[in-house]
Amino acid sequence: GTATVSGHHTLQLSSLLPATVCTHSTIVENKKRLKVVDKHGPCFQLHKNKTSKAPTPAEILQQDEYRVNSIQSHLSKNSIETDATTIPAESGETIGSGNYIVTVGLGTPKRDLSLIFDTGSDVTWTQCQPCNACYKQNEPLFDPSKSTSYASFSCTSQQCSLLTSSTGKTQSCSSPASPCQYGVRYGDRSYTIGDFGKERITINQSDVFDNFLFGCGHNNQGLFSGAAGLLALGRGELSFVEQTAQKYNRIFSYCLPPTSSSSGFLSFGKADKVSGVVNYVQLSSASLSNSFYGLQLEGISINERRVSVISSSGTIIDSGTVITRLPASTYRALRYEFQQQMKQYILIKSPVSLLDTCYDFSGNDNVEIPKLSLLFSGGTTVELDSTGVFYALSESQFCLAFAGNSDNTE
């Protein structure tokens, strides 16, 4: 749906709009890759059951704000604690859930479950029977009593102490035989609470992991769009990445699909030889929380001309945040130059406050848009795909998918 003409991309607008039909995957499916689909799109097959209504773009952006607020709060808390100062930040919450779904097997016999994957989370969980309070999910609930490989832990177990160190929450332990309880509350007030246990998790026929530590949720509420739970790909020691480090050596990759009707992939371990160059950027964690994947983004270029410089304390890459957030001054510089390059189109007042550079593309099937690239420390440049520039609010309103943090010093 895209082409490059005279230094610009030609973008087919329909590729950004919500689709009703899932297109056949063009990815060569292989046993090392899990298929990734949009949580709200037609390729999440279970949407056909209509047990959950797809949110509007405005609702998705509101959720995105909750997630970003949680991330900023979490990071502020960490940095402020280092400085031995106190701020009134919300604590005890992790960030909101992500936007992309993969299917993995859990238990013996294996039950396939559609889980949201999230690089910002450390605890994997699924809704379990018996359920005291559960949101609607499209697959039957996982029943640990019907799995021969499930076991729970007591609150005095070593595994339970791992949970305490990972979530920062102290276990209440009335007696040594009391069950180990986990609880995760997300930034949008969604939550999951239940038994902490271990189970067999199956990625594919040859990649099966016994004793995988996860949460079996008996009280769960939130906007999880019919998914059965969450696959945590964060940096904590309970994340899937850490628990499978012996086999996969802490290497994984994903490709997020360009449209809601197409699919991407999630794979673990060193990749087979692929076409195309991988441009690497140094991972930086020292100045950020241990929970997130930090990079040093230094600037942004439009049509190969650097227009904004980032001098903030760092950048994290997150699979669950929708809109890229930049320091306020960086965003202003990007916005100015972007608007200059898009002068031939009608700029409209945004109906969504988060996004303030929106265009009315009525009457156009395709538009020409400038090339945007991310400039990282070490000289690495990553050019964005043409589908990675705009966020569609409606069939005629398309907004630059960047936003500024409210203040550089906030």
Binding site: D64, Q72, R250, F252, L256, G276, Y280, L283, P327, G388
Partner: peptide
């Protein structure tokens, strides 16, 4: 803190090599 969101990651393969302390990007991967 800036956050690189998922719209900007579309079609890029994002490779997390935690042991190697690096994150890679490959264009037009899906």
């Amino acid at each position: 803190i800036a956050i690189l969101g998922n719209v900007q990651q579309r079609r890029l393969e994002v490779v997390y090599d935690i042991g190697g302390q690096r994150v890679g990007f490959r264009s037009a991967a899906c």
